[in-house]
């Protein structure tokens, strides 16, 4: 149900155009990867989907992004972000307890009942494969967790407001290989329930976790297809150059 349709999207930082005529259909309950060299606009594209770019004064976007056939450009960003969760490049837990981190989202959205909150926290931590590691110390400060644990906590925090879409902005770039593997497993498990869009500079990661892959270069969408096709038989010369490591 929750498919995302991006139509004729153009985006600018001041005078500089950073996304050019992007048209992209993102399928529901699939993992879609966006790859490309740094500065190609992949993070900007991702942040358009939950309008995090609104905070940048000089940013401007034109075009349409439909989620369930509703244009998010016309939506209230607060409601939009409840529906579209996000996990950032560097783990950014709140300087609060583990419990408070996960319960914070549901609380601001109006869940007050203690036992409901407990249930949400438990489920979210389990879904994020963190429960077993933290169940005895939910009252500890989240900043005491390791980097990998913090990132899974941030995923649990995003899941707790029951979004339909989850955006992952290079979620493993600050993590060690073991933590990265855990998060990749988690992404594959989560697609049963959520539509996932992941930005990554790591092509192996895109190949491992995603169903579809989009390749961006200098703000242009060069190629978009299912992941196997894109990596094995790319149609565009530039895609081939990039995935074979000839540049970027």
């Amino acid at each position: 149900m929750t498919s995302i349709k991006i139509k004729n999207l153009n985006a600018y930082y001041g005078e500089k155009q950073v996304l050019k005529e992007i048209n992209l259909d993102i399928g529901e309950k699939r993992v879609t990867a966006i790859i490309g060299p740094s500065g190609c606009g992949k993070s900007t594209l991702l942040r358009c989907i939950n309008r995090m770019n609104d905070f940048i004064d000089i940013f401007r976007a034109e075009g349409e992004i439909d989620i369930d056939d509703k244009d998010i450009m016309q939506m209230d960003p607060v409601l939009l972000r409840k529906q579209v969760g996000m996990v950032f490049q560097k783990p950014n837990p709140f300087p609060k307890t583990i419990f408070e981190n996960v319960a914070w989202g549901p609380k601001i959205h109006g869940t007050k009942d203690k036992s409901t909150l407990n249930k949400i926290v438990n489920n979210s931590l389990k879904q994020a494969a963190l429960w077993d590691e933290v169940k005895g110390r939910l009252k500890d400060n989240a900043l005491g967790l390791s980097g990998g644990q913090q990132q899974r906590l941030c995923i649990a925090r995003a899941l707790a407001v029951s979004p339909e879409v989850i955006l992952l902005d290079e979620p493993c770039s600050a993590l060690d290989p073991v933590s990265t593997a855990k998060i990749e497993d988690l992404i594959v498990a989560l697609k049963k329930h959520y539509t996932i869009v992941i930005v990554t500079h790591n092509m192996q990661q895109a190949a491992r976790v995603s169903d579809n892959t989009a390749f961006l270069l200098n703000g242009d969408l060069i190629e978009y297809s299912d992941t196997d096709t894109l990596f094995e038989t790319p149609k565009d010369k530039r895609t081939e150059d990039y995935i074979t490591g000839r540049f970027g």
Binding site: D76, V78, L79, K82, I108, H109, G110
Partner: peptide, 9 residues
Amino acid sequence: MDNVTARKR
């Protein structure tokens, strides 16, 4: 349904 209006107020 959602409490957004109240929260914004």
